[in-house]
Amino acid sequence: MSTDSTGPTGSPGSTPAASTPGRSTPGSGNGAELIRFDKVTKRFGSNTVLDDLDFTVAPGKHVTLIGPSGSGKTTILRLLMTLVKPDEGTIRVDGEYLTHEEKGGRLVPAGEKHTREIRKKIGMVFQQFNLFPNMKVLQNITEAPVHVLGLGRDEAEERARELVELVGLTECLDRYPTQLSGGQQQRVAIARALAMRPQVLLLDEVTSALDPELVAGVLDLLRDIAHTTDITMLCVTHEMGFARDISDDVLMFDAGRVIESGPPEKIFSEPENERTREFLSAVL
């Protein structure tokens, strides 16, 4: 492992940027990139979900993926989380290959251990929360810091208490997930992901499973996190207002490809692509 990893800001990757023209997101000024997809193809059976995809995300940026259902947005997050493996192409996080290892100058599929080390830089919040029902809120948050990062229990609990305060659920520390509302569960899930101090936070349609009246609370929390921290966010959402508020860049997906990308003001106000216009007029 060649790069250091210093806190949530992340550090510039060691790989020089060689982004594909037209598809890369605008760099953060120093040309660094935290996430890099190179010619990634993913198929499920005969269905090609991602087609020769290139894209990069610079450290600290908030990138939103939009597009019709089935366009491959969620698959990108699941690839980054190694919940699915790419059929072709490579993914790099902070300059290091995620599902491959360099051995003797050749790229070979990575072992579980290598992948896990890289993956520690990434946190994820799921559509269905996926809290552990057998653990109380506090333990849901401390479990991974203690057993994965090797933090002392006191330190992990200290961290958990701060995060629970941040998400506004101090009174729920001692409850089980089933005793919480959907919105509360999702806020715990956000705290759980942040407790690992990831460099990248993946948000997979985090409000889709919530009752309408609970959506605003969760989105406000995420806005707050987006504006007050320098964590990199990669976000799949159908909440266009939210996307506009937090995004530095918006990528429009269709049929496994990025068909348009740019800052939210541009994408939402004057999209160039016909499909983007159609999609936005349907959802806005």
Binding site: E112, R119, I122, G123, F126, N130
Partner: peptide
């Protein structure tokens, strides 16, 4: 999947 996302070993 949640366990994977938090980097637990198998």
């Amino acid at each position: 999947e949640a366990g994977i996302a938090l980097s637990f070993t198998p």
